[in-house]
């Protein structure tokens, strides 16, 4: 497979020479998917915690809704975001279409249900006796919540990892609402699609390899945080 070896060589060359365009695309990928995931954490963890700890009418339905959201096809989110942000759409006055902000919005929508759903499951699987114990020790509500989140931290980090994995690998929504504009909204996934269309397979392979390295590095850091001091 000469294309793959050429691609590998090309990837090494681009990384070693710090090719400005590739660096810029890589940084943007981190910025967009990182911000998207961060927002989804701000939305997802409180939502998941709320659903795990409160009982109210309609809770079951909301939980199914969150679980349904975990399987939201990115391309559908992309289309809905596109239609909302177009010039003559409901939020057209914000002038956000074909900008990194639009991509962040779409990615946050994709990742939020994933983070919320897995947070919900993580908190629910904390030993119920522990909950009683925390209350019995006289914790106030804030302390109770923080302790529970701390106990569920492994699962919650998994939620963040899954959310980030969902958005950094996503191409449909980014293409639609970002437009793959060179030097502005081009990220590693959309750049790869473009290079294939151009017939530049080596470059496409190189970009894929850089995406894999990037994803692995970030996941490695998150896994390290998760597994710290947990060696069996």
């Amino acid at each position: 497979m000469p294309v793959m070896t050429e691609g590998l060589k090309e990837a090494v060359r681009l990384l070693v020479t710090l090719d400005p365009e590739v660096m810029e695309i890589t940084l943007r990928t981190i910025q967009v998917s990182g911000t998207g995931t961060f927002i989804s954490v701000l939305i997802g963890i409180p939502t998941g915690a709320f659903l795990a700890l409160k009982t109210f009418f309609g809770r079951g339905f909301l939980v199914s809704l969150v679980n349904f959201g975990m399987g939201l096809p990115p391309v559908v989110v992309g289309l809905a975001t596109w239609l909302t942000l177009t010039r003559y759409g409901p939020l057209g006055m914000l002038n956000l279409l074909y900008s990194p902000t639009a991509m962040i919005i779409a990615q946050a929508i994709i990742a939020s249900p994933i983070v919320a759903g897995l947070t919900l499951a993580a908190i629910q699987s904390v030993n119920p006796k522990l909950k009683l114990q925390i209350i019995a020790l006289g914790a106030n509500r804030i302390q109770y919540l923080l302790l529970l989140l701390w106990e569920a931290r492994l699962g919650i980090l998994s939620a963040v990892i899954a959310g980030f994995g969902g958005v950094i690998s996503e191409v449909g929504a980014s293409m639609m609402v970002g437009g793959n504009v060179r030097g502005y909204t081009r990220v590693l996934t959309t750049a790869t699609v473009l290079e294939v269309s151009k017939g530049k397979f080596e470059l496409a392979c190189a970009l894929s390899i850089i995406l894999l390295i990037l994803t692995f590095t970030i996941m490695w850091v998150l896994s390290y945080l998760q597994q710290r001091g947990k060696n069996p």
Partner: peptide, 29 residues
């Protein structure tokens, strides 16, 4: 159309236009 982008033509023309006029072109191919 995709052909102006996939052939590489706009990669050559747009930087010149952007430099000349100060506009930023968002190409939707």
């Amino acid at each position: 159309t995709t052909s102006t982008v996939d052939s590489g033509l706009l990669d050559v023309l747009l930087p010149v236009f952007e430099k000349l006029t100060g506009y930023r072109v968002k190409t939707i191919s």
